[in-house]
């Protein structure tokens, strides 16, 4: 039997809009993942430490305040420094398309804009999960 996929859903910065992050967390729980949820107002340092200590497979970052270009790459950098080499990072929130290439380059592999169906998010997670991990069968 495969183990369950572990995902950290985190909100870096000062933005308090957590409706999307919570919706994603709950939907992924219902899809069978183990979700670590840390709430709003997280520093990049705290998020990186949580991702590594929790040994997650995925790290989802949500930001609606426009601070993503500064905060997302910072989180990725710190995660890698702490040894979280294989953690797949994805992002969501109000992120203009023109920012996507830069974020992709900084290691945010996938970006989900407003209105993305959950089935798309789940598909990406299934496709990129480690071989020994799965969502609900």
């Amino acid at each position: 039997m495969k183990r369950r996929i572990r995902i950290l859903i985190a909100k870096p910065g000062l933005d308090g809009h957590d409706r999307g992050a919570k919706f994603v967390a709950r939907s992924l729980r219902d899809a069978g993942a183990e979700i670590i949820y840390t709430g709003i107002r997280q520093t990049p340092e705290a998020i990186a430490a949580a991702a590594v200590q929790e040994d997650v497979d995925f790290l989802g970052l949500s930001c609606l305040s426009g601070a993503h270009n500064r905060l997302f790459p910072e989180v990725v950098k710190l995660v890698r420094e702490l040894g979280g080499q294989d953690i797949v990072v994805f992002g969501g929130g109000v992120i203009p398309k023109r920012d996507w290439p830069g974020l992709n380059e900084a290691g945010i592999r996938f970006i989900f804009g407003p209105g993305t169906p959950m089935s798309d998010v789940i598909a990406v997670i299934r496709e990129n999960a480690p071989a020994d991990a799965e969502l609900a069968p």
């Binding site: 910065g13 000062l14 933005d15 107002r41 520093t43 305040s65 426009g66 601070a67 270009n69 500064r70 905060l71």
Partner: peptide, 19 residues
């Protein structure tokens, strides 16, 4: 500003003047 932090607070990084 809404959280009572100055623009030079470390927590403010990236958020100054955004929303």
């Amino acid at each position: 500003t809404q959280i009572g932090m100055d623009s030079d607070s470390p927590m403010a990084a990236g958020e100054v003047g955004k929303v």
